[in-house]
Simulated assay, not measured.
Amino acid sequence: MRRMYLILNGKSSQRDDVRAAVAHVREQGYQLEVRVTYDADDAARFARDAVCREADERPDVIVAGGGDGTLNQVVAAAIEADAGTRCAFALLPLGTANDFAAGLDIPVDPQAALVLAASGTPRKIDIGRINDRVFVNVASGGTVTRITREADPRAKRLLGGAAYLIAGASRIGELTPTRASFSADGFSWEGQFLAMAIGNGRLAGGGVPLCPEAKVDDGRLDLMLFPQPEADHVLSLLSSLLREPDGDLQGYATRASFTSLRVDAEEELSLNLDGEPMSASRLDVKVEPGALRFVSRA
């Protein structure tokens, strides 16, 4: 039976369905150790503790219980502490959007997700790095990212993806483009853009396929770059970026697939790495193929 180590976001620790799922897995005979986060750096601290244990105490699977941000914190800290960790990882999706879970067909029902973590077969997936910061799903940047990052957390809980659209539409006058140059394997582009997405996974922003052709296990990352559109198309692009899972994003976007990418911007870019903020004017992006063993159905 697997030894499992659940790092549970404190905001979800009192949910009855989460408690019932933990009890169910333990009743099946699995060892499940639970650590509940309280402070902002707890998830990272718990992850470092898990991967650095002696072999006979190290968990077989570390489960991130929370949203994409919690998963990012857990994976990034674990890899930083032990790049060659023998622990596998899994996700108990408890966030607002759960984009990474949706992309890998991980159930949102807590019991089903924990049973999958306990019994599913780990497979190797890629991770991305930007200036040595790890991301697992999607990194996005540009003015749209800055504005949506500032969306009211209460609105996000109540309205989901619609909150991002409302935040962007209400501040459309602030959607000033950023000028930057992009250079990757056989690809170069320079100009003004409103948004960019670098995808290991396909979905972000509540189910929007920002990087529809990205695959977590192909040894590459996908760039979707959204140049500054004509003035009367800005709201349409914004709507497609933030609210329409079936929107034709590729009609607005320039796409590239790469193993390494360099971005030089005239000013600092606001970035969102799986929900974790970052700012920089120069980005060195690369993929690390098969760096993570992850339990999923897809």
Rank of each mutant, 00 (worst) to 15 (best):
R220S: 12
G128P: 01
E244H: 12
L292C: 12
A151L: 09
T254F: 02
R149T: 05
L271S: 01
R146L: 00
S170T: 14
G29C: 11
E174F: 06
V74I: 12
A167P: 03
G275Y: 03
Y30R: 11
E266R: 13
P122I: 10
A118E: 00
D185H: 11
T176I: 11
V18D: 01
V263S: 04
D126N: 10
D16R: 13
D39Y: 13
L8D: 02
L225A: 06
L158H: 10
I166L: 14
S119N: 11
P59L: 04
V61F: 08
G141T: 00
D274K: 05
R262D: 06
D42A: 11
A88T: 13
L94Q: 13
V138C: 03
V263Y: 00
F135H: 02
L261T: 03
P177L: 03
D60W: 10
I106Q: 01
M4L: 15
D217Y: 09
A298D: 13
P227H: 08
G219C: 14
A180F: 03
G66R: 09
A256K: 02
D99P: 08
L249Y: 04
V115K: 07
V63T: 07
G207V: 10
D284Y: 11
L114Y: 01
M4K: 08
G67L: 08
N72L: 12
V208Y: 00
F294L: 11
G65Q: 02
P209T: 05
T96G: 09
A83N: 09
L175P: 01
L273G: 02
V74C: 09
Q250V: 14
A64E: 05
I198H: 00
V216M: 05
V108T: 15
A184G: 14
R157W: 09
A78Q: 02
T37N: 10
I166W: 09
V134T: 15
R3K: 15
V36F: 03
G84P: 03
E244G: 03
G84N: 14
L104Q: 11
A167R: 09
Q14Y: 11
